[in-house]
Amino acid sequence: MAVAAYEQLRPTVVRAAPTHLEVADVSLTYESRRGRVPALDRLSFDVAQGAFVSVLGPSGCGKSTLLKLASGLLRPMAGRIRLAGEPVTAPRRDVGIVFQQPTLLPWKTVLENVLVPIRAMGRDASAGRERALELLRLVKLEPFAANYPHELSGGMQQRVGIARGLIHDPALLLMDEPFAALDAMTRETMMDELQRIWMSTGKSVLFITHSIPEAVYLSDRILVLSPRPGRLLHSVDVDLPRPRTIETMADPRFVALASRLRQAFVAMAEPA
């Protein structure tokens, strides 16, 4: 059975694995002319090597900020961020990122957009081409390789961004609501593809989402953040067997977990 095969492939070492990403006591306040906006408040958590960790939280609670910190685009004002034991001071080549917006270059074709990290890092683009086409097949966009972004729908553009985040085979993948712009059907296929890629490559993933079922379906652990400034409210382990499928969504444990998380959100929305 597929599940048993998976258990053999990836036993419970997930939790015993060494820390890949360490976020310790991290705070960040945006300073602008109109004042100070505290975005994250003493946030701490770890992502173990090969783990899939999701972040759930209300809009504006600092999720994208967290991703920028983890990628080295922003530096924390307090606390520290380490990747494989080293402090993150600048973006690293072993990290892939999928932004909340597609952020494609309008003057490059879909294929060239997927190759952007390869070219930016000065790697061999001819070898990257094969892989880029393979990733485009994966996100169901191979026929559009020669098109320009403005000829694609928002959801299609977002999928180009997903392929781009994977092109250089990063050890840590940071994803900011990558499936938010997709229709329900595509979203489900993408969830399965992501699970498959993750299971077969052993990447660590930090995955931001607004969708509770998506988080439960994909994650080993779910972090729930408070409204702005984001603090860690809950950390929930998900030990449903892998690979998860449509049937998993009907599993009583899945349903119970999703409804617990929903209640946590409802409690958050109520004034204290």
Binding site: K68, S71, G72, L73, P91, R92, R93, V95, I97, F99, Q101, T103, L105, V116, P117, R119, A120, M121, H168
Partner: peptide, 18 residues
């Protein structure tokens, strides 16, 4: 240029000249 594109390029370790 859209600052998000600059962030994107920086995240993928592009040099300022690139």
């Amino acid at each position: 240029v859209d600052p998000r594109l600059l962030d994107m390029y920086r995240a993928f370790s592009a040099s300022p000249l690139h």
